[in-house]
Design a protein around this nucleic acid. Structure first.
Length: 291
DNA sequence: GATCCGTGGCG
DNA sequence: TCGCCAAGGAT
């Protein structure tokens, strides 16, 4: 059973969270910054950083004028700091190639660094009101349950997932964009992964999962990713030292964060390769552009 | 398609 | 306590 767009949009219009990047005065740039920050990162942690960024860098060219090190510091502990570098690169491209205007066309957005299938369509829909299937983890879960009657979404398949949603998109552009935002909102606040609040769900009566008695997820087990002791962990520790220090540091300062010298050095090398760290001529290490 | 890439809160 | 989870993208 497809999702009743009228029910869902009405619920969204009356109950949606008041998030700053949803306000009418928010620019397309503000929407783009929010979408990048929200990748794999909860709203509560993004909000304060988003405000700082929009206040400090209100247009793409302003961010482009900042150094990579400044950008990484301002990114703080949002996680996945390569996103910050890519957003900086995207801002530079927008400033130089698009007249400082965030593109509204999906294919043009896809050509920018750090912008993939989800983010390109999210910006087109939420910043410009375009009709595009916006599919994130929330949408995949809501569709899996409400439409397919499954406990959760299986492994992602961009093509199939977008086709699923495209079929349900209202014809009207503005309503299509609100429908997408509503699907995401429902997954984020009501049809949650762990303990869904089905009693509060606006489409409860139509939900295939509810009708089937809410069967548990039966698909393939999701790969659980470790963190403690991984390279990701060590890279985070190394970067945290550089964020917390005004200028370049000697390697001895970095060596104290992790006992395994082999892993430490491998991670430092990978940070250099990724452009998250630079080495000065005298052999010290710093965030890029800070020496 | 499988892996890698940060960080912190919560049940 | 600790595994799961959070508006993904690049390779």
């Amino acid at each position: 059973m497809p999702i009743d767009s009228d029910l869902l949009i009405d619920w969204f219009d009356s109950c949606a969270r008041d998030l700053p990047w949803r306000r009418p005065e928010c620019t397309a740039w503000g929407v783009l910054v929010s979408e990048i920050m929200l990748q794999q990162t909860p709203v509560a942690r993004v909000e304060p950083i988003w405000h700082e960024w929009l206040s400090r860098w209100p247009v793409p060219s302003a961010l482009a004028a900042a150094s990579q090190g400044e950008v990484l510091r301002a990114w703080g502990k949002l996680g996945y700091p390569r996103r910050a570098l890519r957003l900086h690169a995207a801002a530079t491209a927008i400033a130089t190639e698009h007249d400082d205007v965030v593109p509204s066309d999906v294919d043009t957005l896809l050509a920018l660094p750090g912008i993939g299938a989800y983010t390109a369509r999210a910006v087109a829909a939420f910043a410009y009101g375009k009709r595009a299937p916006v599919v994130d983890t929330n949408v995949r879960r809501v569709v899996a349950r409400a439409v397919h009657g499954a406990g959760d979404a299986g492994p992602p398949s961009t093509t199939r997932d977008m086709a699923d949603v495209a079929m349900m998109l209202p014809d009207d552009e503005s309503r299509a964009a609100r429908f997408s935002a509503a699907l995401m909102e429902l997954g984020a606040v009501t049809c949650t992964a762990r303990s869904p609040r089905c009693a509060d769900c606006p489409i409860y009566d139509d939900c295939a999962w509810q009708k089937a008695g809410r069967p548990a997820y039966t698909g393939p087990a999701k790969a659980t990713q470790k963190y403690a002791g991984t390279d990701r962990h060590v890279r985070g520790l190394l970067l945290d030292v550089l964020r917390g220090t005004p200028g370049p540091v000697w390697k001895s300062k970095l060596d104290v964060v992790w006992s395994d010298a082999g892993q430490r050095d491998r991670c430092l090398d990978s940070l250099l390769v990724d452009g998250l760290v630079e080495q000065t001529r005298d052999g010290r290490f710093s965030l890029p552009g800070e020496h």
